[in-house]
Amino acid sequence: MGVQLDVRRDGYAGRLEVIEGPTGRRRWSESEKARIAAESLLPGVWVAEVARRHGVTRWQVYDWRKQLRQGRLALPDSVASAPGFAALVVEETPSPRPAQACIEIVVGDVVIRAEPGVDGGHLSQVIRAVRAAA
């Protein structure tokens, strides 16, 4: 037909993987899916890296994670019985302040809290503003 394809014929064009079978699709067992999904849930792990390592798309891994959360996939015993650790997060708590009396003024559904020693003029302006807004 005289058709010329714009394809390079010299050199390496890339890797080609041939998958045998009637459909050309891989079949993953439920335990393999659960193991891969669990691997992607580990801290510091990227889903794309896990997917690439196992030859699947990241969307498959996300779907398997969803199935795992919904209970449609069960973790294999080898993964479920492995010891795990929870992250420990320590937050510094502010030093406790001595208990002080607090003035609460309720205007409609608004609560105004004032510390002892608040300027009376300022507090009056706040109350007027809240009443005007209500």
Rank of each mutant, 00 (worst) to 15 (best):
H122V: 13
D77Y: 08
L75A: 01
F85Y: 12
P76I: 02
V110I: 09
C102E: 15
V111S: 11
V56C: 04
Q125F: 09
A48Q: 14
E92D: 13
Q70V: 02
L88R: 15
E49F: 10
A101Y: 08
R72F: 08
H122M: 12
G84Y: 01
C102T: 15
V89C: 03
W64P: 00
A82Q: 06
G120M: 11
E104K: 09
E104I: 12
R113I: 05
A86S: 13
F85C: 14
L73M: 05
A99E: 13
G120R: 15
T93A: 15
E49N: 14
L88M: 12
V111W: 04
W46I: 12
P76H: 02
T57W: 02
V111N: 04
G44A: 03
D119P: 05
P83V: 03
Y62I: 01
I103S: 11
L88E: 14
R65F: 00
V90P: 04
Q67Y: 05
D63E: 14
P76D: 01
G117R: 02
K66N: 03
V61R: 00
A80M: 06
D109H: 13
V110H: 08
V126D: 05
K66P: 01
E104T: 10
V90Y: 07
R128M: 10
A129V: 07
E115I: 07
P96M: 10
Q70T: 08
H54M: 06
G55K: 02
Q100A: 12
L75F: 00
R113T: 10
L75D: 00
R65E: 01
G117K: 00
R72H: 13
E49V: 12
A129N: 10
V106L: 13
G117T: 02
R131D: 08
A134V: 08
L75C: 03
V45M: 07
L41M: 15
S124P: 04
P83L: 02
I127T: 09
S40A: 15
S95T: 11
V89E: 06
V130G: 04
A134H: 14
I127L: 13
G55S: 07
V47C: 03
W64S: 00
V107L: 10
L88G: 11
A134L: 14
H54D: 06
P98N: 10
S95Y: 10
W46H: 14
K66T: 07
V90S: 09
S40F: 01
S81Y: 03
S78D: 09
C102K: 13
S95R: 14
R65C: 01
T57R: 08
